[in-house]
Every structure is written in C-alpha cells, then in structure tokens.
C-alpha cells in the first residue's frame, strides 16, 4: 500500500513538473529597431541549444511552416543562445541541426543572449510574431507541455495568424490569458542577465 501511495505521489510530481511552464519574461510588443518588418511577417524563436524540450518547439514550428500556404510571406529567425566563454561549437547541437533544416528559417547565434534579452524573452522555445509594420501579434510557446509534440493552442493560433484566419486582437487576448505557455529551459540566467547589465 505504501508502495502504491509512493507511486501515486511520484506520478503527481511528474504531472506537476510537466505542466509547469517556464518564465514568460517581458517580451517586446513591437519589433526592435532595425528589424525588417515593413512588408511581411517576421517570426522570431529563441532557443537554448541544449534544451531537450525545445525539440518539440522546433518540430512544431517546422510543421506549422510546412502547412502554410505557398504564398505566405513570413521571415523566420531562430536565435540560439551561446555564452561567450564556451567553445565556438557549443551551440551546434541536434537542436541546431534540426533548426537549420527548416526551410526558410535563418539560424542565428545569440552571443551571450543579447538578442534574447533585447526581445525580453526568458524561456527556450518562446516565439514572437511581428506583423508587417512591427506590431507583435503572437508571443508564447507552441507546445502543449514539456517535450510534447503535436497540436497545441499556441501553434494553432500562430498558424491561423500566419494564414490570416485569426486577428491580432484574438491573439492578443489569448496572450493576456496566458494561454500560450512556454515549456523549456531558461535561456539566460538571472545572474548572467544582471552581469551583462552591469557591464
């Protein structure tokens, strides 16, 4: 009986861990200056190259992009965090390789997470979508849990936005309801962020 109770407690712990989203951070609501968002959508995803949960995010992103109509006009930028004190190939993980295979996606190394910090993102797998003109129309994760592939509210909302099936208002409402939780590793630690700010 004790054993069965321990099993149930363990299951509850797993359930709690799997359903606990990462930090949302303070994503920017407008595209930073210098970002080309004049005529087309720009999708930006921030990733920790060693985050195993983010494979689902990359996979789901690939799936979304594959299902978009051929005339969809969206630029995709994926920023991979790399601390400056690590070897140069530190970021070249399986996740990096899979991301580079996404058609049309551009993978960038984000040295020391400056871009991540610039966009106000904290958790790997966080996606920001800026509509033409620079307005942010989507913010959040595109997985339903840690490492869970498949359909999820964030991915469906993102797909509908790109297809023009959902308005920015509806997306913003969902964002405010925290419906697109991000499940992944924390990209930039608080200590690193404070150090960088100090510098």
């Amino acid at each position: 009986m004790i054993w069965l109770v321990l099993l149930l407690v363990s299951g509850g712990f797993l359930w709690h861990y799997s359903t606990a989203p990462g930090a949302v951070g303070a994503p920017v609501t407008k595209a930073p200056a210098g970002m080309d968002v004049d005529t087309h959508f720009r999708l930006v995803m921030f990733l920790h190259p060693h985050c195993s949960c983010s494979r689902s995010s990359v996979g789901n992103l690939n799936h979304i992009l594959q299902t978009l109509p051929a005339d969809s006009d969206v630029d995709v930028d994926l920023y991979f965090f790399r601390p400056e004190t690590v070897p140069a190939d530190w970021h070249e993980t399986t996740l990096w390789t899979e991301a580079r295979r996404i058609p049309g996606a551009v993978c960038h190394v984000d040295p020391d997470g400056r871009r991540t910090t610039e966009f106000g993102v904290a958790t790997s797998g966080h996606v920001l979508l800026f509509a033409p003109g620079g307005a942010r129309v989507f913010s959040g994760g595109i997985t339903s849990g840690r490492g869970h592939d498949g359909e999820n509210p964030g991915g469906e909302s993102l797909s509908r936005l790109l297809c023009g099936l959902e308005s920015a208002f509806e997306s913003r409402l969902a964002i405010e309801q925290n419906s697109f939780a991000v499940y992944g590793c924390e990209i930039v630690s608080t200590a690193d962020d404070e150090n960088r700010k100090t510098q």
Partner: peptide, 26 residues
Amino acid sequence: VSPSTWIGRISTVHIHVWAALLIGGL
C-alpha cells in the same frame, strides 16, 4: 534524450533522469 536541464550556460541533471532513476527504481 534529456540528460541536463539548462539555465543559461549552467546545466543540471534533467528532472527526467531523476525521474527515470528514482521513479523507475520505485
């Protein structure tokens, strides 16, 4: 699959490893 969980450049043993070790042992 998920040996570590990361916070920036700091990694720790992923909770799944502990889960596999402890819950699997249980």
